[in-house]
Design a protein around this nucleic acid. Structure first.
Length: 622
DNA sequence: TTAGGGTTAG
C-alpha cells in the first residue's frame, strides 16, 4: 500500500492537467449531444432531485439508455449515476458498470476512480482498490482528499488499522490537509479496533502538528470513550476542548452526562449538568431524560422528580422517551400505581406511547400477576398500530409462564411466529422452564430440540433450566448426558449448573457422585447453595460426620452459612437424637440472626408430641 | 459528480 501511495507526488499534477486536456472526446460529445433527444433525456433523468429517489431498476435502465445513446453522455453524467447506485450500497454493480464503460471506451476520470475505489473498499477488496489507485495515478490523476478518505475507510473497516494510521501520517507529510472526514473515519476505526488510547493520542498529535481538531472530531472521540465507559478520559477531553477554546455543545455534554450516570457516577453527572448550565449550554430533553432515567433506576426519586419539574418549568417538554423511562423505572421498582399515573399523564399530554412504554407496562402488570390487564395492554398496542417485538412477546410469555398458564404462553409463541417474529434464546428458555414447571417434560424437551434446529443457540441459562427440569422429573440419567456434553463443549459452566447437578444426584441418592462433582468444580467457586445442597445430601444419607466436616469447611472458605444451612443441620441432628449438637446449632443460628424455618418447627412439634423432646427446645427456637 | 459518521435519552 505504502508503495502505491508513495508515488503520489507533485509531478502527477502536471500530467493530471494533460490527461484532462487530452480527453476531449467526452467534452465534444456533450456539446453535440445538446441536439440529441436521447442524451437530453438522460441528462434530465440525472437531475439531482431524480437521483435522490432513483430506484435500482431505473438506474440500470438509465445506464442502458446512456450507453446506447450516441454520442455518449459526458463522464460527469456517468459519475452521477454511479454515485447514485453506490448510495444504494450496490457496490458490486457499480464496479461492473465501471467495467462496462471501459469496454465501451468511455474513459474514467478522477471522480469515476474515486467512486470505484470507494466501492472496492466497501466490499473489503483492499488490494483491488489499491491496484486501481495505482492505475489511476499512472494515468496522471492525483488522488484528492476524498479518494484518500475512501481508502482510509477501507483500511479502517478491513483489518489494517495500523496502515490507516500510517496513511494519515503520510497524507500530512505529502501536504494533504486531513479534514473532519479523515479524522472521524480514523477515530471510528480506532474505536472499532479497541484502540481508544490511540484515538486520544491522535488528538494530541493533531494539536502538535498545528492542526486544531474541530468540534466534530472531539465529539467522535468523546462518544467513543463514553460508549466504553472511559468517562475519566472523556472528562479530560472536555477540559482539553475548553483549553483550546472549543465550546462543547449540548450533544457532547449529554453524552458524557449519560455515560457518567450509567457507570454509577451520578453525582459527577449532576455536577457536569450544573457546569454546562454555567457555561451557557442549555440542556435539552435528552439531557434531562437520560439523567432522570438513571436517577430513577438508582432509586433517587426525589432528585429525579426535582429534575422533572425543573424541565417542565423551563418549557423543555418531556417526550415519549422521558415518560417511558420513568414508567420503566417505576415498574422495575414495583411501583405500578405510579407507572399507571404517568401513563395517564402522557395520554393527557397527547404523547403517544410507543413500544417501550407498552412493553414496560405489560411487564408491570405481569409482575403483579395482573395477566388480563397485561394482555389487554398488549391488544391495545396492536390496535394502535404499535406492533410488539420479540421483547414484548417475551415479557408477556414470561408472565403467563410464571402464572402457571404455559398454554397461553405457547399460544403467544405460535402467534408471534405467524407475525413473522422469530423467537430468541429468551423466548425458548422461558417456555422450556414454563413447560417443565407445568410437568410437560416431553414438550419441554421437544422445544429444546426445535430451538437448536432453528439455529437459536441455547445459552448457559437454557441448559441450566433443561438440567433442572430433567432432574426435577427424575430424569437424572438424561440430565447427566446433557451435562457431559456441556462439559465437553466450549460453554462455560457456572455454579448454578453444578448446584443443579449436585442437587439432582443427591435427591436421586447418588451422594458419592455428587461429592465427586463437588470436589471437582472446574475453577468455579462453590457458593452457599452448593454447600447447603451437599450438606443436605449427606444428612439425607445420615452421613452426619461428613455434613459437619463440610459445615466447618465452608466457614473456613469464608462462605457464610445461611438460615438453610443451620436448619438442615439442626433437623439432621434432631433426627439423629443428638440434642446437644442440635441445641448448640440453634444457639449459633440465633446469634447470626436466623430463625427456625417451617420444617424445623414441624419436626420439633412432632418430637414434642411423642415425648422425644421437651418444651425448652421450642423456646430456644423463637 | 467523489468520501466519513452521525447526535446524545427509555
Amino acid at each position: 500500500m505504502m508503495r502505491s501511495v508513495a508515488v503520489i507526488g507533485k509531478k502527477c499534477l502536471h500530467r493530471h492537467t494533460v490527461v484532462l486536456k487530452g480527453n476531449p472526446r467526452t467534452t465534444l460529445c456533450w456539446e453535440r449531444s445538446f441536439a440529441g433527444a436521447s442524451s437530453d433525456d438522460c441528462r434530465e433523468k440525472l437531475s439531482r432531485k431524480v437521483l435522490q429517489d432513483l430506484k435500482l431498476d431505473d438506474a440500470i435502465g438509465l445506464f442502458g439508455d446512456m450507453v446506447k445513446s450516441r454520442p455518449f453522455p459526458s463522464i460527469v453524467e456517468f459519475n452521477k449515476l454511479l454515485s447514485a447506485v453506490a448510495k444504494m450500497k450496490k457496490f458490486e454493480l457499480v464496479i461492473s458498470l465501471g467495467e462496462q464503460m471501459q469496454t465501451l471506451g468511455i474513459s474514467h476520470d478522477l471522480y469515476t476512480y474515486s467512486i470505484l475505489i470507494n466501492c472496492f473498499c466497501r466490499r473489503s477488496q483492499l488490494s483491488l482498490a489499491l491496484a486501481l489507485l495505482g492505475k489511476m495515478m499512472k494515468l496522471g490523476y492525483e488522488p484528492d482528499i476524498v479518494t484518500l478518505n475512501s481508502l482510509l475507510n477501507g483500511f479502517c473497516h478491513g483489518n489494517r488499522i495500523s496502515d490507516a494510521v500510517a496513511l494519515v501520517d503520510q497524507m500530512v507529510e505529502m501536504g494533504y490537509k486531513p479534514d473532519t472526514v479523515t479524522f472521524t473515519t480514523l477515530i471510528h476505526g480506532l474505536f472499532l479496533h479497541n484502540k481508544a488510547s490511540e484515538a486520544v493520542a491522535l488528538i494530541d498529535r493533531m494539536v502538535q502538528r498545528g492542526c486544531q481538531p474541530d468540534l466534530v472530531t472531539y465529539g467522535a472521540v468523546v462518544n467513543g470513550l463514553c460508549k466504553r465507559g472511559d468517562t475519566d478520559l472523556a472528562l479530560n477531553l472536555l477540559n482539553k476542548m475548553e483549553a483550546a477554546k472549543i465550546e462543547a455543545n449540548v450533544v457532547i455534554y449529554s453524552t458524557v452526562i449519560d455515560s457518567l450516570c450509567k457507570y454509577r457516577h451520578e453525582d459527577d453527572a449532576l455536577n457536569l449538568f450544573t457546569e454546562m448550565e454555567n457555561k451557557g449550554v442549555r440542556p435539552n430533553v435528552i439531557t434531562y431524560s437520560s439523567l432522570i432515567s438513571c436517577l430513577c433506576n438508582y432509586g433517587r426519586w426525589s432528585d429525579a422528580s426535582r429534575l422533572l419539574s425543573d424541565m417542565i418549568e423551563r418549557k423543555i417538554n418531556p417526550n415519549v422517551v422521558t415518560f417511558s423511562a420513568l414508567i420503566d423505572a417505576f415498574v422495575k421498582k414495583g411501583k405500578l400505581v405510579e407507572a399507571e399515573k404517568l401513563y395517564d399523564e402522557m395520554i393527557k399530554r397527547s404523547i403517544d406511547p410507543d413500544i417501550f412504554t407498552y412493553s414496560s407496562l405489560i411487564n408491570g402488570f405481569c409482575m403483579h400477576d395482573r395477566l388480563d390487564e397485561a394482555k389487554h395492554m398488549f391488544e391495545l398496542m396492536i390496535s394502535k398500530d404499535c406492533f410488539p417485538n420479540v421483547v414484548t412477546y417475551n415479557t408477556l410469555i414470561k408472565g403467563f409462564c410464571k402464572a402457571k398458564r404455559v398454554e397461553e404462553g405457547m399460544e403467544l409463541f405460535r402467534e408471534m411466529s405467524q407475525r413473522g417474529l422469530v423467537g430468541d434464546t429468551v423466548t425458548y428458555t422461558t417456555l422450556i422452564q414454563g413447560l417443565f414447571q407445568a410437568g410437560d417434560v416431553d414438550m419441554a424437551q421437544e422445544l429444546f430440540k426445535e430451538m437448536e434446529s432453528f439455529g437459536v443457540s441455547p445459552d448457559i441459562w437454557t441448559y441450566n433450566i433443561l438440567l433442572d427440569g430433567l432432574c426435577d422429573h427424575r430424569k437424572l440419567e438424561k440430565a447427566s448426558v446433557v451435562f457431559e456434553s456441556m462439559q465437553k463443549s466450549k460453554m462455560e459452566l457456572n455454579i448454578f449448573t453444578y448446584n443443579i447437578m449436585i442437587e439432582g444426584m443427591c435427591k436421586a441418592g447418588e451422594v458419592d457422585n455428587a461429592w465427586k462433582l463437588f470436589t471437582g468444580l472446574n475453577g468455579v467457586k462453590a457458593n452457599v447453595v452448593t454447600y447447603n445442597t451437599m450438606i443436605s445430601g449427606f444428612c439425607r444419607k445420615s452421613l452426619l460426620q461428613e455434613a459437619n466436616a463440610l459445615f466447618i469447611e465452608m466457614k473456613e472458605n469464608r462462605t457464610l452459612p445461611d438460615s438453610c444451612t443451620y436448619n438442615t443441620l439442626i433437623r439432621a441432628h434432631l433426627r439423629d437424637g443428638d440434642k446437644t449438637a442440635s441445641a448448640e446449632l440453634i444457639k449459633a443460628m440465633r446469634s447470626c440472626g436466623f430463625v427456625g424455618d417451617a420444617s424445623t418447627f414441624g419436626l420439633i412439634t412432632n418430637m414434642l408430641h411423642d415425648g422425644r423432646l421437651d418444651k425448652s427446645f421450642l423456646d430456644m427456637l423463637s
